[in-house]
Every structure is written in C-alpha cells, then in structure tokens.
Nucleic acid binder design. Structure first.
Lengths: 248, 248
DNA sequence: CGACATGTTGATGCGTCTCAAACGCAGTGG
DNA sequence: CCACTGCGTTTGAGACGCATCAACATGTCG
C-alpha cells in the first residue's frame, strides 16, 4: 500500500516516481529485469497472514488492499495503482490481502534481494522511506475520514483523491475513472453500497458530478466537491485540483 | 506517532526499544546528550502545519496526536508513550499537533542533525524503518476499527491495546492506567464521550472490567475482553495478553 | 465553600444500516 | 436480432445504533 501523497491526501508525482531522466537509480529500476506476471481481475496476489516472500511493483492495473474481520466484515485500506509497490513494509507476514481490481501486471522481487538492494543503495532507501512516510500520511487522513466525516464528505473526499491520483492533465472538468465496484468504494469508505449509491445520486442531482458510464464520473464542479469533502486545517497546503495552470 | 506494535495492534518491546545491553547504537542514544524539556499537561509541543524543525524523544509522560477539521471536529490518531519518537516522519511540516496528556519530559533533536545521524548509522536507519512499519501497521488496525467496529468493540480494543502497551508483567487481572480523558478516548475511537462512558459502564456491570479510580481500570476478564474486541483474522498471530507465561 | 472541569445517566432524534425489490447493462445462446 | 440470465447498481421502507441535548453527579482546585 505505497500510495504517494502530496502533503496530505493527494497525488503521485510521476516525475519522481518514474524518474524518466534516470541518472539516479529508482526503486522501479531494480524491478526492470524481473519477469512480468499477469493476473485477471478478482484474483488474489497474496493473502493476509502469508509469509511475506516477495515485494511487487504494479506495472499496470489496480489492486485493492483488503482486511477481513473474523465474522466477514471487510475493510479496504487502500488502492494501489501502476507505479506503486506492494508488500514493501518488510515484515515477516503480509498484513493484508492484495486483490486485483482490474486485470493487472506486476513484477516480482524476492524479499531478501529487495532488502539487500535497499541496503546497498542510499537513493533507493531514500525513496522507500519517502513512500512509507507518504503512506503513513495517507493512513492518517483516512483515519480522520473514517472517524469524523459523514457519508457525503467521505464520497467527495474519495472522488477528489481519485481525481488527483489519475492526474490527467487536470482540465476544468476532469473525467475520473473508477475501476472498482461500489462495494469496494463502500468498504474503503466505511459505508454500505446503498449509502455510496445514494450519495453519488444526490451529488449528481445537484450537478456536482455527472455519471459517465459505469466506471467513470465527470467532476462538474471541482471546487464545490472540494468544499464538500470537508478538508482538514492542513490540507490547504495541498494543491487543489482546480488550481493547476496551463498544462492541458 | 511511532507506536511499536507486535504483529498488529500491540505492545512495545522494551528490550528492543531501550536496548539495555547496548553494543548496538540505539535511536535513543542519539538523544542522550540532549537537553530535557518539560511541559505541563495540556500544553502543545508542536502544531499541525508547523515547519518540522525538530524530532522529539518522549522520556516520560504521554502525548496525544491530534488533527482538527476546519469546523472543529477533532481526531486523535494515536497516543505516544515514553520511549517513542515524535515528528520522525521527516516531512517538511508536522502533519498533526502533539499535545501533552500528562506532564511530560522530552529530548529535542534538530531535524537536520537527526537526518544526518540516520544517514550515517545503518542500525539507526533499521530501527527507524522498523518503527515506521509498526506505526503503519497500527494505523491500518485503527482504520479497520474505525471503519467496521461498533462502540463496544472499539472500547474493548482500546482497553486491550492499553493493557498490552503498559505491559506490566501481565498478571491474570492487569490494572491499566488510562491517563487520557474520556474525550481523548472518544476522539481516538471515533465516538462521543457519552458513548464511551455508557460502554465502559456496561462492561463494568457485566463484570468484564472494574473501575479503579478515575484513570485506571482492572481488566477482570481479559479473555472476554479480547473476544469482544472483534479481532481480525491476522490477529491470532499476536500474543494474547493472557497467554504470557511465568514472568510475573 | 463555591466554581469549574470531567464524568455519568436519561430522553429523543438523526444518519446510516438492513432488508427487499426493481432496474440496467453485459454476455450468451437461441 | 432478441429473449434470457446474472451481476452490479439503484431506489424504497423501516429499524437500529450512536449522536445530540440536557440534567445531574463527582472530583479538583482556588
């Protein structure tokens, strides 16, 4: 669950992540010679409690990070997109299951070799550390959301997060892909599918968003959406999506 | 918010933390020459959004990690006990406020010097990384709690956590100190003070716990408490408090 | 002793969950 | 090409858990 965030809940900077002009070694580089594995949507990469044998780089597709209570209640603690890492927290066992939301492609790296590589290269260490910090920041934001925000704020927050994440050149009215089902969204937001559905419908009827097919939404009023998300004091430091100039 | 956990939500191992037989340099060691600062209960060590100038080691007392939404809703994302670090995530600004729950003593270390020290000493890096991972695991457990657990499960979970944390030689009927107020507990558990109070009363009337003064509780039935906490699948790996043999 | 903070207990309301049914889209086979 | 089927989603009615508001008890400190 290595979601890179900007200040608090936010976007992954591809510039840093992929380091296109790589003089500096990047975390991705150590995966570049590894074999690609493909999985169908719905398949499980690893299970909560499994010995943590590998670290994965997500090359394409989206994963969900799942935890389940003994009576079946399900919690999704995050979504992992292409360019991010899975299982990099380097504990003996995975703390969660990783399930493919879409068809996915990953590169696998042995845990020990990954750890050695990290030990050897200071720049990689730096990046890994930075990602852990980002992930921790995201986790704290999520705690705030789950602790004190109502259904509408949660859904708006989620839509904003997804908008920033795909970061598609930020037009005034971005179209956001939502590859996951309503159930996934519900389990991520601590709600039920019905509540998520009702909230989305209400937002649409108010003209804040507009449905665009099963798995995407047009953000009609990004500013309204942001104010409805009930950001915390610290969040104004994060770049709002509507502020990004030029770069269409 | 560097809470060390055992497997998932759990205890800080003093053996690792304080490294009493220190051949290996410990994170604490780099603070050992620093001046001690003392603060009264209720005072704020640093504010959410402040430039992250320092890293702190808590020598004595307890802090709460606080985030506030723009309309005043308050969330506590963690409690920091003696032996743990504050502000070590090494971002430009603090992501949360740190407030003293009790009278506290801390050692301060300049952020840059701390970072240099971390860069220079592999063992410290290892420890810091391990703590970050533990903190992340704790954050995920908390997300599960806030997302899907009811009031009773939350309170029981909290009491268990506190029991493991103080780790007082685990008698059959441990006495747990709760230095924080009901409001703190409520803001940590995503509840109101009234609900926390009612839940505690109900647990007491059922003989699971017994009040022992304002700020401490006797855990009368640890096993019952654990089952009421609604642990997740992974948690059985964590040592339950009643299993610890000998060591009285 | 009074003033204030903290905690408990009670009555009521609201937001979300639960249960249930209908809808819509995608894929399939006739 | 279209009915058929299955799954995800939407929509509705009612129930329930926790929040809210309020009163009171207790502890603490001047």
């Amino acid at each position: 669950m290595l979601a890179r965030t900007h200040s608090s809940q936010a976007v992954m900077s591809n510039a840093i992540l992929l380091s296109p002009n790589s003089k500096v070694p990047s975390l991705q580089d150590i995966f570049s010679n590894q074999m690609m594995d493909r999985f169908e949507a719905g398949s499980t990469l690893f299970w909560e409690g499994d010995p943590a044998a590998s670290v994965f780089e997500v090359v394409a597709g989206v994963f969900r990070i799942v935890r389940v209570l003994s009576d079946g209640r399900r919690v999704i603690t995050g979504f992992i997109y292409a360019g991010e890492l899975l299982g990099a927290s380097l504990r003996d066992r995975y703390l969660y299951s990783a399930e493919a939301v879409t068809r996915v492609t990953v590169r696998r790296f042995g845990r020990n070799r990954f750890q050695e590589e990290i030990l050897r290269q200071p720049e990689l260490r730096e990046q890994l550390f930075s990602r852990l910090s980002d992930e921790l920041a995201a986790a704290q934001d999520q705690m705030v959301l789950l602790s004190r925000k109502n259904a509408e704020e949660r859904v708006c927050n989620f839509l904003l997060l997804m908008t920033r994440r795909v970061a598609q050149a930020c037009p005034a009215m971005p179209v956001v892909e939502l590859p996951m089902t309503r159930l996934d969204m519900a389990d991520y937001l601590g709600l039920t599918i019905e509540t998520v559905s009702r909230t989305m419908t209400k937002l649409a009827s108010r003209g804040v968003i507009a449905p665009a097919g099963r798995h995407s939404v047009v953000i009609v009023k990004p500013v309204t959406l942001a104010s409805l998300a009930g950001e915390s004091y610290a969040d104004p430091y994060a770049a709002p999506i509507e502020r990004c100039s030029g770069a269409a």
